[in-house]
Amino acid sequence: MDTLLEQASTTLVIHYSCESFYDKNDGKTPRITSIAVRNLASGQTDSFSIHQIAEEQRVPFDLIVDHYDDLERQMLDRYFEFLRSRQHFNWLHWNMRDVNYGFAALEHRHRVLGGQPIMIAEDKKFDLSRALIDLYGVGYTGHPRLETLLVKNNITNRDFLTGVQEADAFENKEFVRLHQSTLRKVDTLANLFERTNSKKLKTNSSWAEQYGYTPAVLAEWAKEYWIVSLVIVAGGVLTFVVRAFDLWHLLVPATP
Rank of each mutant, 00 (worst) to 15 (best):
N191G: 02
R177T: 09
Y211M: 13
S9E: 15
Y79N: 01
F126K: 08
G102K: 04
L106I: 00
T148F: 00
Q210R: 15
A219L: 12
I50A: 04
E174I: 06
D246H: 12
Q44I: 14
N154T: 05
N204P: 05
Q180I: 00
F103R: 01
H179N: 10
T29Q: 01
E19Q: 15
Q180V: 00
W207A: 14
L71S: 05
F89C: 05
R58H: 10
Q165V: 06
H67K: 12
I120C: 05
K124N: 13
G236M: 13
Y16R: 02
R109Y: 07
H15E: 11
K152E: 14
E147N: 09
I133S: 03
V176T: 07
A41I: 07
K202R: 06
Q165T: 02
E107T: 02
N154D: 14
A131K: 08
R58T: 08
L218C: 11
K223N: 12
D66F: 12
E220P: 03
N25L: 13
Y101S: 07
D123M: 00
N172L: 13
S9C: 14
H143S: 07
Y22K: 04
N204S: 15
H179Q: 13
N197M: 12
D70N: 07
A36P: 01
D46C: 02
L238I: 06
S20F: 05
T182N: 13
V231R: 14
P30H: 01
Y140D: 00
R243S: 07
L106A: 02
S198I: 08
V233D: 13
N157A: 14
N95T: 03
F240I: 11
K125T: 06
L4P: 01
K24R: 13
D46F: 03
V252G: 02
K223V: 15
I14Y: 12
Q7W: 00
K185F: 08
G114K: 07
E19H: 04
F89W: 11
R111F: 04
S17K: 00
D246Q: 14
V228C: 10
S49T: 14
E107H: 04
I32L: 01
Y101P: 08
S47P: 01
I120T: 11
A41H: 11
D98T: 01
Y213I: 09
K28T: 15
I32M: 02
A219M: 11
F80K: 03
E171P: 00
E224N: 13
R86L: 05
D2C: 08
K152T: 08
L250F: 15
A167Q: 10
F245P: 06
F245D: 10
V217W: 10
G235A: 08
V176L: 08
M119P: 01
L161H: 05
E55W: 06
Y68D: 12
P30V: 05
L12N: 02
T162V: 09
E81P: 00
E55N: 12
T156V: 08
R73G: 11
